[in-house]
Structures are given as C-alpha cells and as structure tokens.
C-alpha cells in the first residue's frame, strides 16, 4: 500500500493547520513525523489514516481515495494507533488485541483460526504474550503500550500509523518500541510514527518528515533533515552532536532566542 497526498491542506476551527502537503508513504520504510508542537503532525497522520477530511487536496491509497477504497478495505490496509490510546472498559489484554482483527471479520462471522494466529503473532512481536490474561487497566504504561501496539499489529495491515507511540515510555521501553517499529518496516510494512525525541528519530528512522508552520520544511534521510539550520528554523534549538560506536547522534542542547527577539537585540 502506497499512500500519497496531493496539495493537501487542513483547517481546524477556521485556522489553517497544513497547506500544500505533497508526500508519498512507501512500504518497507520507517518514517518519523517530527516537528514542534502545533505543527500539524497529528492532523497529517489522521489524514493519512483517512480519519479526517482535508480542506483542500486529497489523499490516495494505491491511487484511490478513501471513499473508493471502502471503509473496511481501508481498515484492513491501514492500522492506526491513536495518541495515548484510551481503553474504556476493563478488557483483558488478549480480548483487546483481538479488536485489531475486527476489519477481517464478517458481519456475523466468529473468530477464526487465522484471527487467533494473527493475535498470537502480534502478542509475540510486541513482547506482550505474558500479559494476555491481564486487565488492561492494571498494566503499567510500558505494558499497556505494548498491548496497544499488539492490537495495531494484529490487523496485519500493510501500513501502520502511530501517534507518539513512545511518548509515555521509559528509556528502555522507548528503545524496544522503536526497534519494534523498525523491524515491522523491515518486514515490508510502511510505518509512520509521530515522534518528539529527535535522538531516537535520528537513530531508528529511515526517513524523517519535518513539519513546521503547516508545511514540510524538510523530508529525507535523518542526516539531511536534522541540520543545524532546519532545527533552528523549526524548533528554535541548537543541538550537541557526537558519535557512539560509529553511529552519529544528536542531543537537543539549548533553546535559541526567537528570531523576533533577535532583531530587537540588534536594534
């Protein structure tokens, strides 16, 4: 599945969030969607999932619009993991992961052997098999995210869209979750994740899309996107760079004075 956006614009409450976005999401790559708060990352991800109507332009899934693709076919093709992932009832983890199979089940059809197998694979991949009997509300933040990720993986969709999947995790679980998303992409899925942690984004993603002021400021391999100039323009920060085991890394180091206060200082 290849998702393309054509001159995409989005508005919320009369305010323009995104304008003129042209992107292609390819299978087999782990793409990080980065940018400052309010840059429109979640809006773009929801548009890519077919969950929101663009103000202008369109999103196509293998060349077809969401309406042409059809609700259920789209649900089988694109798995979406919302930010913070609410769970409203005290379900057991296994039953929750089984919800990811809903797009594959007929209106009256029961759970099939294929559904059970997919749930087992998802639980194993997300390292959540031992949590299957637990009630979701009793899980820790890291366990809960693994179960929710397993739910999204259980759909076995060619595209996985995740909104801030590592935001609430401790460093160990962040690393494990990023590796899991990268491995999912290695197995052929197109994975797009909204990320705030630039260090993790630079290390694990094949491609970064940097959003700023409602547009794409940079798009490409992490090394080309995370330049000093781009980071200053988008986030107003300077970074510290280094290398560990031959891998380059960067750390947000200090906030720069904003351009407007800059000019005031010069005057």
């Amino acid at each position: 599945m290849r998702i393309e956006t054509h001159a995409l614009s989005a508005k919320a409450g009369g305010r323009t969030i995104l304008t003129g976005i042209n992107l292609t999401i390819e299978p087999g790559a782990f793409t990080g969607l980065i940018g400052p708060n309010g840059a429109g990352k979640t809006t773009l991800l929801r548009l890519l999932a077919g969950l929101a109507e663009p103000a202008a332009g369109r999103v196509t899934f293998d060349g077809q619009t969401a309406a042409q693709t059809g609700r259920r076919a789209l649900a089988r093709a694109v798995a979406y993991l919302p930010q913070s992932g609410p769970v409203h009832w005290p379900l057991r983890a296994e039953a929750l992961v089984m919800l990811g199979r809903l797009p594959h089940r007929g209106p009256l059809g029961g759970i099939t052997a294929a559904d059970r197998a997919a749930v087992e694979r998802a639980l194993a991949t997300a390292d959540a098999a031992h949590l299957r009997g637990r009630i979701v509300g009793t899980l820790s933040g890291g366990e809960r995210m693994r179960v929710l990720l397993a739910r999204a993986l259980a759909t076995e969709a060619p595209v996985l869209l995740a909104d801030e999947p590592v935001a609430a995790l401790d460093p160990g679980h962040q690393l494990a979750c990023m590796a899991l998303l990268r491995d999912t992409a290695r197995r052929g899925s197109g994975v797009v994740a909204v990320l705030h942690d630039l260090t993790l984004a630079a290390r694990f993603c094949d491609r970064l899309i940097l959003l700023s002021d409602g547009g794409v400021l940079a798009d490409g391999p992490p090394g080309q996107v995370l330049t000093d100039e781009n980071l200053r323009a988008a986030y107003g920060i300077a970074v510290h760079r280094g290398a560990a085991g031959g891998e380059p890394f960067l750390l947000p180091w200090h906030a720069l004075p904003s351009p407007s206060s800059d000019t005031e200082t010069i005057r």
Partner: peptide, 16 residues
C-alpha cells in the same frame, strides 16, 4: 467493541 479504543481507533477499524 471497537469503540472501547476511542472514536478514532473505532473508525480506523472500519466502523461508521
């Protein structure tokens, strides 16, 4: 069942 995961997730699972 799908709404257990919230409205966006339910819609992404193919429900109107």
């Amino acid at each position: 069942d799908a709404l257990t995961l919230g409205e966006d997730a339910a819609r992404s699972l193919g429900f109107d």
